[in-house]
Structures are given as C-alpha cells and as structure tokens.
Amino acid sequence: MHTDSRPQQASAEPLLPERGHEVGYENGPVTKVPGWHGLIAWDALLNGMATGLFLAAAVSELAAPAVFMRVAKVAYPVALVLLLVDLGLLVLDLGDPSRFHHMLRVFKPGSPMSLGTWCLTIFSLPLTAAAALSLLAELGWDFEWARLLAVVVGLLPGFASAAYKGVLLSTNAQPGWKDARWLGGYLTNSALVMGCGEFLVLSALMGQTQAIAILRTAFIVLLVLNVIPLGLLFANLRPIHAQLYTREQQWRVGALIAAGALIPLGLMLLKGSVLSISVAMIFLLFESWLVRAVYVKIPHTSPLEVRSGE
C-alpha cells in the first residue's frame, strides 16, 4: 500500500539536534559560564569610577588641602552616587537578589567575592559620612575634623574595594580569565586613572585653576603609566583572543582601545580647557568600558559564533 510520506514526516518530525553540535565531549567547553552577562562590565567600570574618584580626591586633599578641599567636597557625594549604582548592579546580578545580605553571613578572606563585599560594605560607611559631612559643610554645618577622619578611614577599604575586582575575575576556571594575571593590576591602576580624570573634570567645572594644573600633569603621567598593565593584560589574553576572534576583529578592537588611550593623552597635552578635559574623559571612559566589555565577554563567546559574525 502506497501512502504519501510527506504528511507522515511532518506529523512525526523528530526534534532535530542543533546544527553544528559537536559529537563527543573532547572539543566542547568543560567549564560553565557564570550568568553575569554584561552587567559585570558596567560593575567593573562603576566600581573603578567610584573608588578611583574617592581615592584621587582623598589623596589629593590630604596632600594639599588648600588646593583640593573645595573640589573634594563635591567629589565624595559623586563617588557615593556611583558606588550606590554599582552596588545596585551587584545585587541585580545575583540569582536571588532578595538574599543579598547573605553575603555578609561569613567573612572568608580566601574568597575574593567575600573580601570584596566586606570591603565595599565597610567603604560605604566612611564614604557616606564624608559625602554627608561635605554637603552639610556647604549648608553651614562644618565638622571638618569628622569629615577628614571619615576620609582617612575610607582610604584602606576604598583601595581594597578597587583592588579585589580583578582578582575576583582572574581567580577562576573560566577560559581567558584564568590566564589574566594582570587583570587586577590593570583594573586597580585604571580606577585611579579614571578617578584622577573625574577629579580633573570636577576641578575644571568649578574653575579651580591650581587644581587643574596639578591634576592635568598627574593625569598625563597616569595615562602613560596605564599602558603598562594594559599591555601586560593583553599579552596574557593574546592566546585566547587568537582562538575567539579573527585577526581583523582583533585589529579593530585594538585600534579602538589605542584610540581611547591616545586621544585623551593628546587632548591633555594640547589644551587644558573644560571642553578638552571633558572630551578626554569621555574617550577614557569609552576605552575603559571597551576593555572591560571585551574581557568580560570572553567566557560568553564561542569561537564559532564570533568567527561566523553572529
């Protein structure tokens, strides 16, 4: 008996495997990708911006209070806002955000995430105090000694909050991340560069000429210095980049990062106006975000997807 096979095929169509699926286990990824997605790139950026701004303002103010005190009083509240947004992203990135306080259940110095959470929590207290007392001072209630005490107390946890992030990402089994020995060095250094740039922008907006002159020089030196850990980081990541990206894609990203580093440097060397400082800072933030995004994307990227241009 003859029957048309097409309807039968349609009704009993098997669930076909996905195209390109590897048979066997040898060539597949062994590790699982943590579900952090793109949020962690923004977290790494905001963490650097908040801690870097605080550290740059605190160090400058304590070293030369007459020059930097006015700008620092504005910088602390800005750093607090950046930190609060960053903490919000960290909570959102959890699988169960309503359990965020479980992070403070134990203190495990051997766990970079535990150390970082405690440092961020402790840092938020003197930062909040410094920000609040700075705002109160503007309103006429000046508790200068208490504000300076809060700034000094915030230095160590602020620095630790900047330093833990790279170690958190490099201390794991993910391809690429596990080889990034200089990620922590780059991110901490980058936080200070961004912080110095932000502090310079605030000084320029407030018309603090002495602060601008000093910070512009520091910013130029820091931009040059930052190339060293960035270069070391890319040397660490070269093998995994070669697996994930085509040569053309590597050049494209490299060119964008180089532009993000060189344009602010050029602008700073040429002119110290509010406009050039602001534009330089925008380019620096773009470059800093791009480095973080490219790096964060590594475990989420399969060579096949990238090479086929998806």
Partner: peptide, 12 residues
C-alpha cells in the same frame, strides 16, 4: 545560596 555564581566560575 544567593546565586552569586562564583562557584560556577570557579569549578574546573
């Protein structure tokens, strides 16, 4: 567990 995913990233 609050789903921070650190264990996922760490497991080789």
């Amino acid at each position: 567990c609050n789903g921070c995913s650190c264990c996922i990233a760490a497991c080789p």
